[in-house]
Amino acid sequence: MKKTVFLGALTVAGLAAGAAAAATLDDVKARGKLNCGVTTGLVGFAAPDSNGEWNGFDVSVCRAVAAAVLGDATAVEFVPTTGKTRFTALASGEIDMLARNTTWTFSRDVDLKFTFVGVNYYDGQGFLAPKNLGVSSAKDLDGATVCIQTGTTTELNLADFFRANKIEYQPVPIETNAEAQQQYLAGACDVFTTDASGLAATRATFENPGDHVLMPEIISKEPLGPLVRHGDEEWSDIVRWTLNALISAEELGITSANIAEMSAGTNNPEINRILGTEGTLGEMLGLDAEWAKRAIAAGGNYGEIFAKNIGEATPIGLARGLNAQWTDGGLLYSPPFR
């Protein structure tokens, strides 16, 4: 008799079946929700607050896509994933896109068959050390114990860095960021390494953030970006251009404050094209004309999202650095909307 709970649930699952087969865009529209893979919790990038509301830099990308596609920035189902589960979740169609500070690498793109739609954060692996350790460079870390968060490219970079510099170290692989932090603070490891942004976010939660410093060395390139499955170009175009719309919006000065005013029409044809008052860009994507307007209105342009979640005014306090617009000497360079 109790089998029926199972069968009932099976019927529910049966209704939900057939997700990955059809085009992702149609699925998302039919479902009315975007399934977006995020981390299990990294302050500033993706973490639920005490009300269960997800916030963060990666989360904002998900919300922008949901706003563009579904017209509702809250129509996102956040699926927490670990380093191990994230790719299977995406490959099996459990999630529509993955925005989990994932490094764009050759093998992930080519071998694992994913499409990285762009870069929303240019990162690099760094080291966090207590000030009183008296180490000024990562090259002085001969013999040190290093805490690593597993499931990332971090282990490999670290092994390469120490091998290239011919120095020894002891890795302590830890599953979650919170536990790695606990080990680091208790002195069970001398330094903690992960992406520099993650280090800053971690340091922000310390009791005395000032007692800890980031080493000057950045030992790897970590272009982090959202990714989707290979083979569904319409869907990857939507996610890619939503991200580009956020970046272009900053470049063109479209903010969540002036977007309503600007969408009445401006003298800049590109702004008009983005906001849908000119041209048929939305139609080409299979969306309506105002898709980008909604995406930008959801959380602001790239700069606003950055400032709100991880910028210098937040406890995390990341400078724009490489993530400034190309006009300001950064690497953010969105292809033109035309």
Binding site: F87, S107, L112, T150, G151, T152, E175
Partner: peptide, 20 residues
């Protein structure tokens, strides 16, 4: 859970992550 390199952590963990 504690970062000990047993077979679940090497073969079923990092190797699985890195090779997919």
């Amino acid at each position: 859970a504690v970062g000990y390199a047993d077979v679940t952590a090497t073969l079923g963990g990092i190797t699985l992550n890195q090779t997919g």
